[in-house]
Amino acid sequence: MTSQLPDATQRWRCGGCGNLTRFDVTRTRQTTEFWHFDLAGEHTVESTDVKGEFVASVSCRWCGRDDAIEIVDRNEAALSEDPTSQSPSD
């Protein structure tokens, strides 16, 4: 199980089913937001500053596992899912 967010060079992968695209993420964020209210009382959040973030859990949307989520390099994941990148068997 991972409680880490991938950075710009990484992504999540489910080691159970191979999913690279669908995850349920439970996280807690502490933010400071600038709210702008119009005269009718409706608001728009104009800016958000994330002060802290905690990832409680990540689970695979396809198979439901939360014990097989891993962080992998984006380039390696892209190569492993591209059938043209694999050498054909002779």
Rank of each mutant, 00 (worst) to 15 (best):
Phe34Ile: 15
Leu20Ser: 09
Ser3Cys: 05
Ala40Phe: 13
Thr31Cys: 09
Ser57Thr: 05
Asp7Ser: 12
Val58Tyr: 00
Gln30Thr: 15
Asp38Val: 08
Val55Trp: 03
Gly41Leu: 11
Val50Leu: 10
Phe34Pro: 05
Thr44Tyr: 04
Cys14Glu: 02
Glu33Pro: 04
Gly41Thr: 02
Arg27Tyr: 02
Ala56Asn: 15
Gly16Glu: 09
Gly15Trp: 15
Phe34Trp: 07
Thr44Asp: 01
Leu39Cys: 09
Asp7Cys: 12
Val50Cys: 04
Gly16Tyr: 02
Ala56Trp: 12
Leu39Arg: 06
Pro6His: 00
Leu5Val: 05
Asn19Phe: 01
Val55Leu: 04
Gly41Lys: 07
Phe54Glu: 05
Val25Phe: 02
Gln30Gly: 07
Thr28Phe: 13
Leu39Pro: 12
Asp49Phe: 04
Val58Asn: 00
Leu20Ala: 03
Cys60Met: 11
Thr9Glu: 13
Phe23Cys: 13
Asp24Leu: 05
Phe34Tyr: 08
Glu53Thr: 11
Val58Trp: 00
Lys51Gln: 14
Phe37Thr: 04
Ser59Tyr: 10
Cys14Ile: 04
Asp38Pro: 15
Glu46Trp: 07
Ser59Ala: 12
Ala56Phe: 05
Thr2Ala: 08
Val58Asp: 00
Thr31His: 03
Ser47Lys: 04
Val55Asp: 01
Ser59Cys: 13
Ser3Val: 10
Gln10His: 13
Thr44Ala: 06
Glu42Gln: 12
Leu20Asp: 08
Val58Gly: 00
Ser59Gly: 02
Val50Asn: 03
Trp35His: 15
Val25Glu: 12
Val55Thr: 04
Ser57Ile: 00
Thr48Ala: 02
Ser59Lys: 11
Ala8Phe: 09
Glu53Lys: 03
Ser3Lys: 06
Gly16Asn: 09
Val25Gln: 07
Cys17Thr: 13
Gly41Met: 09
Asp24Val: 11
Pro6Gln: 05
Ser47Asp: 08
Arg22Trp: 01
Trp35Met: 10
Asp38Glu: 06
Cys60Trp: 08
Ala8Cys: 06
Val50Met: 09
Arg13Tyr: 01
Cys14Val: 10
Pro6Asp: 08
Thr26Met: 03
Val55Lys: 02
Ser47Tyr: 09
Ser57Phe: 04
His36Tyr: 09
Leu39Trp: 02
Gly15Phe: 06
Asp38Lys: 09
Val45Gly: 08
Ala40Glu: 10
Phe54Tyr: 02
Glu46Thr: 10
Phe37Glu: 11
Gly15Ala: 10
Arg29Cys: 11
Asp38Ile: 13
Lys51Gly: 08
Gly41Phe: 08
Asp24Pro: 08
Glu42Trp: 06
Phe34Ser: 12
Lys51Thr: 06
Cys60Ala: 10
His43Asn: 07
Asp49Lys: 09
Thr21Asn: 11
Val50Phe: 07
Arg13Lys: 10
Phe34Glu: 14
Ser47Phe: 06
Thr32Phe: 01
Gln10Ser: 14
Thr48Gln: 14
Thr48Lys: 14
Ala8Glu: 15
Gly52Cys: 00
Leu39Gln: 09
Glu46Gln: 11
Cys17Asn: 05
Thr9Met: 05
Arg27Asn: 01
Asp24Arg: 07
Val50His: 00
His36Glu: 11
Ser3Thr: 14
Thr9Arg: 14
Val45Asn: 12
Thr26Gln: 12
Trp35Phe: 14
Gln10Trp: 03
Phe54Met: 00
Phe37Asp: 14
Ser57Tyr: 07
Gln4Arg: 12
